[in-house]
């Protein structure tokens, strides 16, 4: 055997060994994935295609029309919430990267702070702040100003969603923006590019992967939001997440809830695929 051939064999052996190691290292995650991600999806599907007695049926899907408005509403609210979050989070993340390391750490902690608290308690607190006789209105009244209706409005729901998902937008944006090499901006400036043009032609394109993954990470949970919408929105909104929650809670309508859940999953998947189209062109990676 020639040296070259020998090297080839050795390399191939190395490669298979590497493959083996990576499989071994990934094994726990694979099991996890199967058990807690794949299996639940199949259980949801099984419920969606059966009736309460367990017999196969497509009857559940025939009732999809009843919930059309809820699904459409949920997507509209999710889009609004995502847009608002992006507009708020982008400048925040950008200026955060301009601060000293210590300040950045403090700012990051402040962003994450709401995530340390239980969502239910948090939402309840927001309710108390925004109530008709809540903290804000009492403050306004004490200053001799009129009360404003905040709770039980669509705006309150959007506020709740933005408030809750803000960190998911800031984190990917921050990590992308902080990696942009300042030399690129200097080069652009040297070549006569002004502030706005530097942002438009250097920073924005380079931060697109962060924007896309931020949008995905906010949009997906927003669509299926529940509880927040119910508590803050009163009767003004009826999101699909709340509908599913109430359906699944009752044994007799669990199959219907599973059907809606499955449909929602498919629609979200399609949305993500469309998003990936965008991110592919920008060389981003997400899902």
């Amino acid at each position: 055997m020639t040296d070259a051939k020998l090297r080839g064999v050795r390399e191939r052996k190395n490669r298979t060994r590497k493959k083996g190691v990576s499989l071994l290292l990934n094994f726990p995650y694979l099991i996890w994935l199967c058990l807690f991600v794949i299996v639940p999806v199949f259980i949801v599907a099984a419920y969606a295609f059966t009736d309460a007695s367990g017999a196969l049926t497509l009857e559940n899907f025939r009732k999809l029309g009843v919930y059309r408005d809820n699904i459409i509403d949920s997507f509209i609210y999710a889009l609004i919430a995502t847009a608002v979050t992006l507009v708020l989070a982008y400048p925040f993340a950008y200026f955060m990267t301009k601060r000293s390391q210590a300040t950045q750490r403090v700012m990051m902690m402040l962003v994450m702070l709401p995530m340390w608290m239980n969502l239910l308690i948090l939402t309840y607190s927001i309710m108390n702040i925004m109530e008709t006789n809540g903290i804000i209105n009492n403050l306004l009244a004490a200053m001799g100003l009129g009360k404003i209706q905040m709770i039980n409005t669509p705006g309150a729901v959007v506020f709740g969603m933005v408030y809750n998902y803000f960190p998911y937008m800031v984190l990917p944006l921050y990590s992308v923006l902080s990696k942009i090499d300042p030399a690129l901006l200097e080069a652009a400036a040297d070549l006569g590019s002004g502030g706005l043009s530097r942002f438009r032609r250097v920073i924005l394109p380079l931060s697109m992967p962060g924007v896309i993954s931020g949008i995905t990470m906010v949009f997906v949970p927003s669509v299926s939001t529940f509880y927040i919408s119910q508590k803050l929105g009163g009767t003004s909104v009826n999101m699909i997440g709340d509908v599913i929650e109430s359906l699944v809670n009752r044994v007799s309508t669990r199959n219907l809830g599973a059907m809606l859940s499955l449909v929602l999953m498919v629609v979200i998947l399609i949305c993500i695929m469309i998003m990936n189209r965008f991110s592919d062109e920008e060389g981003g990676i997400m899902l």
Binding site: K63, V66, Y67, T235, N238, V243, L247, R250, T253, L256
Partner: peptide, 12 residues
């Protein structure tokens, strides 16, 4: 139950 659950969505 299913009948009134469907009506309930309309109500909501």
């Amino acid at each position: 139950v299913e009948y009134y659950e469907t009506l309930w969505v309309d109500v909501l």
